Simulated assay, not measured.
Amino acid sequence: MEWLLAPATAAAASTLRGELTAFLRRHAEESDVVDDAGLVVSELLGNAVEHAGGPIWVTLDWSASRPELVVHDLGPTFDVGKLTLPTGDSVRGRGLWLVSQLATDLDVVAKRDVGKRIGTVLPLTRRVERSIDPPRREVNPLPALDEAGPTGFGRESFLRALVVELARTAENSTGPASAEQTVAQVGATVGGQMEEEYRRAREVVGRLTVDQITDCYLRLKAAINGDFYVISADEERIVLGNRRCPFGDTVRRAPALCRMTSSVFGGIAARNHGDAVVLLDERIAVGDPECRVTVLLGEAARKNPGGHHYRQHG
């Protein structure tokens, strides 16, 4: 789940802190440490509001047993190794030091252009819930194969399919992860149809090779006005960069749409290599200058506990 604070005010941070804490309380196995987790959220948001001076993106990823909280901002970075308990009556720096004591794996990474990414793992475990890795629907797939042009499906067909499938899935979705679940379902369905279009255009039969999967990714993203390029590709992983989001600047106000890329890429990779994990390493949606997406294949995916996991259905 993801949120954007713009403008990033103390009041907006307080509201989000309450929403996040309530979500953690509903789904955590341990109720006695939820307030500690809420304090971590409060301190990281407060630090960003005070020092960033711009928009703040917040992500909560609970795909593993413990939730990972990530805060992106455009403010100055700091060195985690130098966090110490302030002496005397000083309060500056006390909040981040407290975060380092209550949470684990506190990590600060400077963005390539401006700003930073602060990530930490909250001291909670989640009750077991149903998976949101959806199978591709085989009935009435959208868009139709005949709508593809010389370079693949165009933006109009893609966006129409997006809206239709979002509405269809939302009608049957409940729970706090419904938005992300909806986008994942749309990606699984539309991505599968895009793979079929690619196979027809390239006259491919059987399992797609790594080079063909990479070519398929580039083809489908170029058709919807993305600007993806290959950084590296081998039998274990495909790494792509992207200079332009197909959704334009709107994606900064709806970072959950990045799950579309994850679901499309992960579904295609899993259908051809059994298992796949998609890591959204950098995203325009949260203030990075470009996107960077890593797709792990087969055994490499099975060994990786993070990211978004996909498997071959049927």
Rank of each mutant, 00 (worst) to 15 (best):
Gly18Ala: 04
Ala256Glu: 00
Val49Pro: 09
Thr21Phe: 00
Ala223Asn: 04
Val70Ala: 14
Phe153Asn: 03
Ser42His: 13
Val114Gly: 07
Val71Tyr: 02
Asp35Tyr: 02
Cys216Lys: 03
Leu102Cys: 13
Pro55Cys: 14
Ala37Cys: 07
Leu162Glu: 09
Asp73Gly: 09
Leu159Trp: 04
Lys82Tyr: 12
Gly192Ala: 01
Asp79Ala: 14
Glu180Cys: 03
Pro76Met: 09
Tyr310Gln: 04
Ile132Ser: 05
Val163Ser: 10
Asp146Gly: 14
Asn140Asp: 14
Met1Gln: 01
Met1Trp: 08
Ala269Arg: 02
Gly18Met: 00
Ala12Met: 06
Thr214His: 12
Thr120Tyr: 10
Arg168Thr: 00
Val70Arg: 12
Ile284Thr: 11
Val70Thr: 15
Ala222Tyr: 12
Gln101Thr: 12
Asn242Ile: 03
Gln185Phe: 03
Arg200Gly: 08
Ser65Thr: 15
Gly175Tyr: 09
Ile268His: 04
Thr59Gln: 15
His72Ile: 05
Ala28Gln: 00
Ala300Trp: 01
Leu122Ile: 09
Leu166Ala: 06
Ile132Thr: 09
Thr104His: 14
Asp211Gln: 10
Gly154Glu: 02
Gly287Asn: 12
Pro86Val: 01
Leu85Trp: 12
Leu102Lys: 12
Pro7Gly: 02
Leu20Thr: 00
Arg252Trp: 08
His72Pro: 01
Gln193Glu: 10
Lys111Cys: 00
His313Asp: 07
Thr169Lys: 05
Ala233Val: 10
Asn304Ser: 06
Ala301Cys: 09
Ser90Thr: 11
Asp211Leu: 12
Ser90Arg: 11
Arg207His: 06
Cys245Val: 09
Val128Ala: 14
Asp211Gly: 11
Trp62Asp: 15
Arg112Gly: 05
Gly53Ile: 02
Trp57Thr: 11
Gly93Met: 06
Leu16Trp: 14
Pro150Ala: 11
Val186Trp: 05
Thr21Leu: 01
Glu196Tyr: 00
Ser178Arg: 07
Gly226Ile: 06
Pro67Arg: 07
Asp234Met: 05
Val114Thr: 06
Val71His: 03
